[in-house]
Simulated scan of single mutants.
Amino acid sequence: MEDIQDLASIRIMVDDFYTRVRKDELLGPVFSSVITGDWQPHLNQMYDFWNAALFGVPGFRGSPFIKHAPLPIGTEHFIRWIKLFNQTIDGHFQGQVAATAKNKAELMSVLFQNKLQYAKGQKKIIF
């Protein structure tokens, strides 16, 4: 297996990950309640997000937390999200950028969980 190298690699990663998400009994209903039709606009945004996060390529615009804050999600959703994300990466890639992608996903998970708890008045920090 090769490392994540470019936008083509990111497309493979994102497409496979969201295929897994849509089929997942915990995450699928959450996403399908928000994305009711064509998934391509969301996928395009995720290509841009990961291209910026991994390679510093400009193009992503948005506030991911704001879109996730109103969703009915908790710790179990983040645990499953990380599990599926890591399975996706490990199924396609190996190397430094792949490891960086998994680390960034984990950091995002912790950040989102902290912000959600803070927004709900539970000023706990999760590590």
Rank of each mutant, 00 (worst) to 15 (best):
residue 72 P to H: 04
residue 8 A to H: 03
residue 62 G to H: 08
residue 31 F to M: 09
residue 97 V to S: 06
residue 12 I to P: 02
residue 101 A to H: 04
residue 76 E to K: 03
residue 90 D to V: 09
residue 71 L to A: 09
residue 54 L to P: 03
residue 106 E to N: 15
residue 80 R to V: 13
residue 73 I to Q: 02
residue 70 P to W: 02
residue 5 Q to E: 12
residue 83 K to Q: 14
residue 27 L to T: 04
residue 29 P to K: 03
residue 81 W to M: 07
residue 96 Q to N: 14
residue 119 A to Y: 03
residue 39 W to K: 01
residue 47 Y to Q: 09
residue 90 D to E: 14
residue 35 I to E: 03
residue 49 F to P: 10
residue 127 F to R: 15
residue 87 Q to A: 14
residue 38 D to C: 05
residue 14 V to M: 03
residue 106 E to G: 14
residue 94 Q to K: 15
residue 97 V to G: 02
residue 83 K to Y: 13
residue 21 V to W: 00
residue 28 G to N: 06
residue 1 M to N: 07
residue 99 A to R: 13
residue 28 G to I: 05
residue 127 F to S: 15
residue 39 W to T: 03
residue 52 A to H: 10
residue 81 W to N: 05
residue 120 K to D: 11
residue 73 I to R: 02
residue 18 Y to L: 15
residue 44 N to E: 12
residue 42 H to C: 11
residue 86 N to K: 13
residue 70 P to H: 01
residue 102 K to E: 04
residue 114 N to E: 05
residue 79 I to N: 05
residue 72 P to N: 07
residue 15 D to A: 06
residue 125 I to A: 11
residue 26 L to W: 11
residue 102 K to L: 07
residue 33 S to C: 05
residue 43 L to T: 02
residue 5 Q to K: 14
residue 68 H to D: 09
residue 31 F to S: 09
residue 4 I to E: 00
residue 91 G to D: 09
residue 95 G to C: 09
residue 23 K to S: 15
residue 7 L to H: 08
residue 64 P to A: 06
residue 76 E to M: 03
residue 39 W to G: 00
residue 80 R to M: 10
residue 45 Q to T: 14
residue 49 F to Q: 08
residue 19 T to C: 11
residue 74 G to R: 00
residue 114 N to S: 11
residue 66 I to W: 00
residue 37 G to S: 11
residue 73 I to V: 12
residue 62 G to A: 05
residue 19 T to L: 10
residue 28 G to P: 10
residue 24 D to C: 10
residue 87 Q to T: 08
residue 125 I to M: 13
residue 20 R to N: 10
residue 99 A to N: 15
residue 30 V to G: 13
residue 34 V to R: 14
residue 106 E to M: 12
residue 58 P to V: 06
residue 5 Q to S: 11
residue 14 V to I: 10
residue 87 Q to P: 10
residue 87 Q to N: 13
residue 56 G to Q: 10
residue 97 V to R: 07
residue 125 I to V: 13
residue 56 G to V: 12
residue 41 P to W: 00
residue 55 F to T: 01
residue 6 D to Q: 07
residue 116 L to M: 14
residue 127 F to E: 14
